[in-house]
């Protein structure tokens, strides 16, 4: 390593690194969307009275939450091609892992948000003559959503950071592209610091924003 810092390496490789950043953002966006959708379904099932559904969902959630995300990535990366008999791009196998994994976390947040509304509120709504659905629509959900949105957003920031784990299957996200450049140009210090600082700035600003939201809409 040739003494001193060489930050020009970042500029020379900017397009390559940007490509990695785009993949990170795409993966995050798709995983958040898919995870939220599946998480909502899971939360509703968990709170429903459909036979076995709550227990099954609880089992699913606890199972995935006991497993490291890296292991889940390996599971899907290795098994999806074997199960389907055809090669799936690593992007999709990883995306599926993220969606299934994050849905477990999102569903718990959504469930906690709905359960956090005091029972007295439902009683009061029913006492006014509102139907169950109306009580849900006008009384419970508006409060529940306010309670859970900041937590969902915080979890999504965690998710953004977690996408860096796709490194283990060689998918070229932001961290992996930086790692490739670091190895090729022997500049690990500059590259890893750049990645860390970029995430720090992005995630810190995002969590500041979430805090402001939380304060503005707090009940």
């Amino acid at each position: 390593m040739g003494g001193g810092f060489d930050f020009a390496v970042l500029i020379r490789n900017a397009p390559f690194l940007w490509g990695g950043m785009v993949l990170t953002l795409q993966l995050t966006a798709l995983a958040v969307t898919g995870g939220l959708a599946l998480g909502l379904v899971l939360a509703v099932l968990r709170l429903s009275r459909i036979p076995f559904a709550p227990a099954l969902v609880a089992g699913y959630v606890n199972f995935l939450r006991s497993m490291p995300l890296i292991l889940a990535i390996f599971w899907f990366y290795t098994l999806i091609p074997k199960l389907t008999g055809q090669s799936v791009s690593s992007f999709y196998s990883v995306l599926i892992a993220f969606i299934l994994f994050e849905a477990a976390y999102y569903s718990e947040i959504i469930r906690a948000g709905i359960s956090s509304v005091r029972r007295g509120q439902i009683a009061a709504a029913l006492a006014l003559g509102l139907s169950n659905a109306q009580a849900m629509r006008y009384v419970v959900l508006p409060q529940a959503i306010r309670n859970m949105i900041p937590v969902l957003l915080t979890q999504s920031i965690v998710m953004l950071q977690d996408t860096s784990l796709v490194y283990v299957v060689g998918l070229r996200d932001f961290l992996t592209t930086a790692d490739i450049v670091a190895g090729r140009d022997s500049r690990p210090v500059e590259l890893y610091m750049f990645v860390a600082l970029t995430f720090l700035v992005v995630c810190f600003s995002a969590s500041r924003l979430v805090n402001r939201l939380r304060r503005r809409y707090a009940l």
Partner: peptide, 14 residues
Amino acid sequence: NIPLLAQMFLWYFV
């Protein structure tokens, strides 16, 4: 606010 994996690389390589 820094991904754990990036922290791992920082401690090990940087």
